[in-house]
Amino acid sequence: MEIYLPIAEQSMNVFVLFGLGGAAGLLAGMFGVGGGFLATPLLIFVGIPPAVAVASQANQVIANSISSLQVQWRRGNVDLRMGLVLLLGGMIGSSAGVSVFTWLKAIGQIDFVIAVMYVILLSSIGLLMAFESVRTLWKRRRNPTAPRGKLHTHYLVHRLPWKMRFYKSKLYISAFLPIGLGFAIGILSAILGVGGGFVLVPAMIYILGMPTTVVIGTSNFQILFVAANVTFLQAVTNGTVDVVLALLLILGGVVGAPIGSRVAARLPGVVLRALMAVLVLGVATELLFELLRTPASPYSLGPREVLQ
């Protein structure tokens, strides 16, 4: 069954899009990340223009994060103070990111930049995760009861000025850290259409040193507002948010997420991470291959300008 996407201006199979949303939801349920970083490249593979894929995916991220935030908020797993400071950076970053996006689109390089950023991001995350799971498996075999290390180590970044106390996270750190982190994630969010949880969560644990209990809730809090900001700005400046596309992705995600969390409950964490690493590296390789392969035709068209 085909459906016409009014902003992408093409028809597409409903079940393909629903399935894509479902796959992203499945990942979200399995690994606790948004799944946007896989859904956007897949949308591009099936032929959605990258600019529309990114903007519509940002719209889908809103649904994903509110549904996760619902639970985390009730359990009291959101560090509101940290969330707001992150959000300050996130809002600036995502607004700047949308401007960069608009500029790249105008000079005809947006597709290339999206692909390259995805290759870099996905391959580094994939390799890190693969390395991590191999190391864990190795360690477990040799020393099953390794002692736990310090809560968090102190680096140079912890000496920055304008320190703030974050009670829920049990931290006393410079506000520049979360602002900077939020800024970086905001840019990623705007250009790649992802929530950025898969970068934000490890960064909150390893760079900020936040306790893992509040990380998911707090990151979802920041992602919700940043994704809403990106959706709004993309709709206003680029007009690339396709709500029909986003609707199908959201519906797919609603079905996929609980299946994912049920699967995740039955598999050990290491296996999950290894699976995820393989998946992420696969998508990165395919994207890289697309960039390296000689195109069938070197020509493409930019946007049509109807002169009044």
Partner: peptide, 26 residues
């Protein structure tokens, strides 16, 4: 989407919030 970008953008956000909330709850 072309004539009223801000309204369209807000509509898209509200749609996602409602569906995400309901979906999660259901």
């Amino acid at each position: 989407a072309t004539a009223e970008g801000p309204v369209y953008g807000l509509g898209a956000i509200v749609m996602a919030l409602v569906l995400g909330w309901l979906g999660g709850a259901v």
